[in-house]
Design a protein around this nucleic acid. Structure first.
Ligand SMILES: [Mn+2]
Ligand SMILES: [Mn+2]
Ligand SMILES: [Zn+2]
Ligand SMILES: [Zn+2]
Lengths: 155, 155
DNA sequence: TACACTAGCGCAACGACTTGCAATAGCGCT
DNA sequence: AGCGCTATTGCAAGTCGTTGCGCTAGTGTA
């Protein structure tokens, strides 16, 4: 007998890359722990960018015993699976992209503090320039460029 | 009567940008302290790149009482004068360029750990691409791009 | 369900900065 | 040479990560 939910297609939530994490970990000899579940639950509801510090805080909301080192280590594992990707702000602080649809770099204005994603074409231009230069294969996701935005350039 | 040394042009060392630091600081209402002198003496004999940690160690060789916070603060003021420029390695750690002849970014291979300076033309390509993108004015000196070098790409 | 194997956890210590604050000491001025 | 103003210093404490270690607890297997 089919499960009740499966007969109502409209109620089935869109498949999320997070759905298979537990199995994916286990099939690689890794483990699915309560601590990892907590972090994944937090990541589930975060589309876009988050700092590691903020993730730790969110985890602690759900599980007061959350430890930073465990979160950092789990983020490393998830990054190996491509589920998150990190970069560094101009101060060197870590910033995570959750479920990056497409790899992209960042722009920071040192004057006003605003940030933007580097557009795909622009990112490609950078990648191409460096491929031509030394045959270097750029990891765009880890690129953070600082400078002044158009608005701040005009004072 | 002229000083003895000034009559022997061959013995006069080439003017160094460091020679005027003391006056430059004072004329800006800042001070020339023993601690700053120590750091400048260290920087004098360092052409190229150095980490802040290494600079602190070198200072401590000359003055055992050197304090990290003082060194960091002095590096900040020297950077304001354009005498050093810092960037961040892939791990976010600071790296200083002493007397940067021309502003340039860096390339790090995450596989073999090697590093290169981005060539001027390539740097210009990056600057241009972002100027076109959002009218963003890139600070090339603070750019660190990681990825895989040609050698490591071929495994 | 019981077991053994080992991945992952919490903790404590460390590294690289940063910041607030009270005491010190350059500097310009007389 | 002496003064006073305030830029700097040293220190302590804090933040963001990273790492080594002994103990715990997921997992696959029987
Ligand atoms: Mn910086
Ligand atoms: Mn990184
Ligand atoms: Zn701006
Ligand atoms: Zn390499």
């Amino acid at each position: 007998m089919p499960r009740a939910a499966s007969s109502h297609a409209a109620m089935v939530p869109a498949a999320s890359p997070w759905d298979g994490v537990a199995e994916r970990l286990r099939s690689n000899g890794l483990r699915w722990t309560p601590q990892r579940r907590t972090l994944v639950d937090v990541l589930r509801e975060h589309e876009g960018h988050v700092t590691a510090t903020e993730l730790i805080a969110r985890c602690r909301e759900r599980d007061q015993t959350t430890t930073p080192s465990t979160v950092y280590r789990t983020l490393d594992v998830l990054e190996d699976f491509g589920l998150v990707r990190h970069g560094h702000g101009p101060d060197g602080r870590e910033e995570y992209h959750v479920l990056p649809d497409q790899v992209h770099g960042h722009l920071y204005c040192v004057a006003c503090g605003a940030t933007w994603e580097i557009r795909p074409e622009t990112g490609a231009a950078i990648v191409d320039a460096l491929a031509a230069d030394l045959g270097f294969d750029v990891d765009l996701s880890h690129v953070t460029i600082s400078g002044r935005c158009q608005t701040c350039c005009r004072e």
